[in-house]
Design a protein around this nucleic acid. Structure first.
Length: 156
DNA sequence: GCCAACGTTGGC
DNA sequence: GCCAACGTTGGC
């Protein structure tokens, strides 16, 4: 089983939006970056777990845990000219973009904020991609060691 | 709002 | 295939 980190801007779609969905589940659409696409299409499997990360906001950080309930499949919003994620170059017979379905498993009472993560940027989290300067990937892999360590930082 | 960092595009 | 320009991301 793999672990991941899903970035989202809470002003657009935050963890409370996910909690409000039917069955606390949604498709993770709109990823328009090839590296992230490849990971979703090729490596993300049903049963994988991921951190839900809030970015571009007052308190960036990890706010909860999601489970991948459906592995990579074509992102239909790319075919929808009314969607803000429309991509005329994505051919339905050869889809360019992929998405997965996720379900909210847990919302932390207190987020593990970016400051806290950074405190370990020279230690247990030294290779954590989301802490790397200039990182812009909205989907990043998380190692089992990072996963376990970050869980130990969660305070209920 | 600023700025650094990066991915993508497009001209050559 | 190179690389400058551009647009976007994301923390502050």
């Amino acid at each position: 089983m793999n672990h991941w980190l899903f970035k989202s801007e809470p002003d657009t779609f935050g963890i409370d939006d996910l909690a409000a969905q039917p069955r606390r589940s949604t498709h993770w659409d709109g990823v328009r970056n090839f590296q992230a696409r490849n990971m979703m299409r090729d490596d993300m499997k049903r049963g994988d777990l991921g951190f839900f990360y809030h970015s571009s906001c007052a308190e960036p950080g990890i706010v909860g845990i999601v489970k991948v309930v459906r592995g990579g499949y074509p992102d239909h919003t790319a075919f929808d000219s009314a969607s803000k994620y429309f991509d005329a170059d994505s051919d339905p017979s050869d889809p360019r973009w992929y998405m997965v379905d996720v379900r909210l498993m847990r919302k932390f009472d207190r987020p593990v904020d970016l400051q806290t993560l950074r405190r370990h940027a020279d230690g247990k989290l030294k290779d954590m991609l989301v802490l790397r300067k200039g990182n812009r990937l909205s989907i990043t892999p998380v190692t089992p060691g990072e996963w376990k360590f970050i869980l130990s930082l969660v305070r209920e």
